[in-house]
Design a protein around this nucleic acid. Structure first.
Length: 577
RNA sequence: GCUCCGGUAGCUCAGCUGGACAGAGCAACGGUUUCCUAAACCGUAGGUCGCGGGUUCAAAUCCCGCCCGGGGUACCA
């Protein structure tokens, strides 16, 4: 009856549901959450069930009486030590320590660490990062990239076929301005040393000119029209802008260990725009208004969405609809997830709504996050207070290098740098991933580059210490295989650690389901705290044979889960830091 | 005006599909290195969960109103 591949808590939830069904055959249990959840306070057991109180409300009776009836007719599963009623009607559950140990051994034997195959090879497209061509990435761009990439990794781990698509902003009116500006005042030297910065300078200057000078504006428009009609020269220039930009972006992506399956920018869908808008008209969803073609969504509380501008051009709404239609036909995804900042919420609501009306079957999800701001102001190119993404990464590595040099002065330079890279980049990523994405985020160097406390280096440090233990054990006890000894949990720190370890699959699942990598980060921090406490307070290399091997196994499993969990966030785990 | 977020310890943030005395990190204070990496551990101190009502056995969490901060609100994406 005991199924060690599914978690003890999953089994308990099923058991509670069954028992309630037996005790209260007439109650409508479907509406009541019967799941068993981890206890917040260990004095109340390992896990608890709150269903008695919910059910009592449903039945309009005393919650303690409900819990009492449950407990009287309950046949405890063999892995449960005891259950108790407490407070207003909590059912507190204590697991048998031997069962906990058994679950750990099962996890250790399972290559997937107990992760369920939720995706079953269904396709999910994740549209993230998506920067604009000819604009450098600044620290505002890191959130979409890092959060999107973590979701990518989480979904893959759960058996989904993920297509990561970088939907570049590579088409639009700005290219007329850039082409004209390029012809008139491009600095070829600057284009070689800092291409994207120079392209941005050209764009900004040209844009400002267009606001003051009508002739300039007309000339830019003419260049745009030429580009759109396929003029060879302009097309070549446009392509070179994309290549220049991508070569720089790819350098950043490489540093961040982020990769995409597709780089389909907006231009990819260009020749499908007219057809898409025709479809909207044919379905009676779009109508003329002030010269533009619009979808009136007032009735649904979503204002009005323009799908074709009065000058005949298309905009992001039409492009995004065409993109969904195209992706749906080509890949038949179960879901498309977009990761962008909060400013685009209305846009996504509008175009999701339109997609539904034209019969797109795909589940569309907008994962949005709060804008990054400085303590004193919002970022703005005009204010000149933007922090370039590369500068941030450089600073992170530099600060990490200082710490490495201080703590490992005898290590050779190359090794120090390699560790500083992994630690610095990890710290940056973790800062973004560990917060509720929807909070307002205030950027401070102190927080972004935190190297202690709740930070990536704290987790990496825990991992590195285990790696060291592993090596020392192998050196001191050659020929002994710890896996031939059973896991036995005697110390309270061991038991606490065990309870964290078995919850790994649930953490991954929740993080993916809620589209929140912060759930994973929280879990890993919790786990590391439990491990650090164990490490500090329980001896292992100096323990007797038996407990020693059991503890080495606990270390090994913790290391495996830390490594896997951090990998799901795109964070490296050096063997030594 | 309408609308979407945020307002929790000195600072930065968790918790928010209601649950048991509100959690962590940083900063502060006090301990722990003949011992497995002190980027660590153990402890002390620190909070009217923006304000006011309401629903409930139970509200930081749900509902209503208000205040403060940020975003969006037809031809930029």
């Amino acid at each position: 009856m005991k199924n060690t591949t599914s978690s003890l808590e999953t089994q308990l939830s099923a058991w509670c549901a069954e028992t309630f069904a037996v005790c209260f055959p007439d109650a409508d249990l479907a509406a009541i959450p019967l799941a068993v959840i981890p206890s917040k306070n260990e004095q109340f057991g390992d896990c608890q069930c709150e269903a008695a109180m919910k059910l009592a409300k449903e039945l309009k009776t005393n919650p303690r009486a409900v819990a009492q009836k449950f407990i009287e007719s309950a046949v405890l599963p063999d892995f449960v030590e005891k259950i108790e009623i407490a407070g207003p009607g909590f059912i507190n559950i204590w697991l048998k320590t031997t069962a906990l140990a058994g679950q750990l051994e099962a996890m250790q034997a399972d290559k997937k660490l107990g992760l369920p195959n939720l995706g079953n090879s269904r396709t999910v497209i994740i549209d993230y990062s998506s920067p604009n061509v000819a604009k450098p990435m600044h620290i505002g761009h890191i959130r979409s990239t890092v959060i999107g990439n973590a979701l990518d990794r989480l979904y893959r781990a759960l058996g989904y076929n993920v297509i990561a698509d970088n939907h570049l902003g590579d088409w639009g009116t700005q290219f007329g301005l850039i082409i004209l500006g390029y012809r008139e005042f491009a600095d070829q030297d600057a284009l070689k040393t800092a291409p994207v910065e120079e392209l941005e300078r050209i764009y900004v200057k040209s844009y400002n000119l267009s606001k003051e000078d009508e002739t300039w504006r007309d000339r830019a428009k003419a260049e745009l029209v030429k580009l759109q009609k396929g003029d060879t020269e302009n097309l070549a220039l446009w392509k070179s802008f994309i290549e220049l930009t991508l070569s720089e972006f790819n350098r950043i992506y490489k540093r961040l260990d982020v990769s995409f399956d597709l780089y389909r920018g907006e231009s990819f869908y260009n020749d499908q725009l007219a057809g898409t808008v025709d479809l909207l008209k044919a379905k009676g969803l779009a109508s003329e208004s002030d010269g533009a073609l619009v979808c009136d969504l007032e009735a649904d509380g979503l204002n009005v969405a323009i799908v074709r501008k009065s000058d005949g051009g298309y905009n992001y709404t039409s492009t995004d609809i065409a993109t969904v239609v195209s992706r749906t036909e080509e890949f038949h995804p179960a879901e498309i997830i977009y990761v962008t900042d909060e400013r685009q919420q209305l846009h996504f609501k509008q175009f999701f709504h339109i997609c539904k009306k034209i019969g797109v079957p795909t589940k569309l999800t907008h994962v949005w996050f709060g804008l990054m701001r400085l303590p004193e102001a919002t970022f703005s190119t005009r204010e000149g207070n933007v922090i370039k993404l590369e500068a941030l990464l450089n600073e992170a590595e530099a600060r990490a290098l200082e710490v490495v040099k201080a703590s490992s002065p005898n290590m050779d330079d190359a090794k120090q740098k390699e560790i500083a890279r992994a630690v610095g980049i990890g710290a940056i990523k973790y800062t973004d991933l560990s917060q509720n994405p929807q909070s307002l985020v205030t950027f401070t160097w102190e927080k972004a580059l935190a190297m202690d406390g709740n930070s990536a280096p704290y987790l990496q440090y825990a991992y590195a210490r285990i790696a060291s233990v592993r090596d020392k054990y192998a050196a001191q006890f050659p020929g002994i295989n710890p896996d031939e000894f059973p896991i036995i949990l005697t110390e309270e720190q061991e038991r606490r650690l065990a309870l964290k370890l078995i919850r790994f699959p649930a953490a991954v699942e929740t993080a993916a389901k809620l589209h929140r990598p912060s759930v994973m980060a929280d879990y890993l921090f919790d786990l590391s705290q439990a491990y650090s406490s164990f490490y500090q307070n329980v001896p292992f290399l100096k323990a007797d044979e038996g407990p020693r091997e059991s503890r080495i196994r606990l270390c090994a499993l913790t290391a495996t889960i830390l490594k896997k969990g951090l990998a799901l966030l795109g964070i490296e785990t050096p063997e030594r830091i």
